[in-house]
Amino acid sequence: MEPLTPLVRRVRPAAGDPEGALVLLHGRGADEHDLFPLLDLLDPERRLVGITPGAPLSLPPGGRHWYRLAGIPTPDPATFHASIPALDALLAELPVPFERVVLGGFSQGAVMSWALTLGPGRPRPAAVIALSGFLPRVEGWPLDPSRLGGVPVAIAHGSLDPVIPVAFGREARDVLETGGAEVSWSETPVPHTVDPGWIPALRAVVAGALPPTTPT
């Protein structure tokens, strides 16, 4: 298997004592800089500490990867399983408990967000944001949608996506709704990208999942 490198990360500090954390995982071939601008868009008041990790694999055609491609929706099991403990270690270092973490990502990052919240024995986050991804089918990592029962979940996908067809986003929406999650769904006519039109709905999920803890 390809060697894994330690996770690098960019950190956007909270304005004061962090009331939670917002962790965004990039897509295939990108890096820790790619989703960093989304932190301020989704948490403009900087109530949360923001983290954008860089994936541990360097694979063709370049950039960082969370797993080796083996088709959709089937990540390569060896590299997929190897990335999970690396992400767990990063999440364990956060200054807030996991129940106050909004975990999300784009494309491969969305896939890993599902893996970390629906897989065996996973703890419950504050919310999940899945952009242009799919629910992974990986041997040895069954998904249990009921783990996110009552948890806010934002799913967004472009109807013109040629990389990961929108049917996979719709499937995730339907599966999570059946499991009892509080699903916000956005579908717009864009390709494999983050549509700025999704931001207000995503921001509302973040704010609603982690209401201010400062006494009024």
Rank of each mutant, 00 (worst) to 15 (best):
V49F: 07
V175I: 12
P145A: 07
G27Y: 01
P18W: 01
A209H: 14
D88S: 13
L143V: 12
P3K: 07
S184W: 08
L135C: 03
G158M: 04
P125G: 08
V128G: 02
I199V: 15
G104I: 00
A207L: 06
V111M: 00
G105L: 01
L91H: 09
P215G: 04
H65A: 11
A30K: 13
D195M: 08
P60S: 05
L148S: 09
H192I: 07
A21V: 04
L41F: 06
L4I: 03
P200F: 02
V190H: 08
P77G: 06
E171K: 14
L116S: 04
I129N: 00
A207I: 07
L103N: 03
R147M: 06
T5Y: 08
A201P: 09
E182A: 10
G158S: 10
P212S: 12
D31K: 12
G29F: 01
G169H: 07
T216P: 15
V194N: 07
S132N: 10
L202I: 13
L38A: 09
V194Q: 04
F134L: 02
P142H: 08
P145I: 02
W198T: 13
R124P: 15
A78V: 13
G133E: 02
D161N: 12
P77N: 08
P191M: 04
T193H: 08
R137E: 11
G158D: 06
L69H: 15
V49I: 14
G16W: 06
D43R: 12
A14W: 05
E2L: 14
P191I: 01
A172S: 14
A86L: 13
S113W: 00
L57M: 12
T213L: 15
I164C: 14
F98V: 07
G16I: 08
D34I: 00
A55D: 00
L87P: 15
G62A: 10
P60F: 06
W114G: 01
H192Y: 12
G121C: 07
A89V: 04
P37C: 03
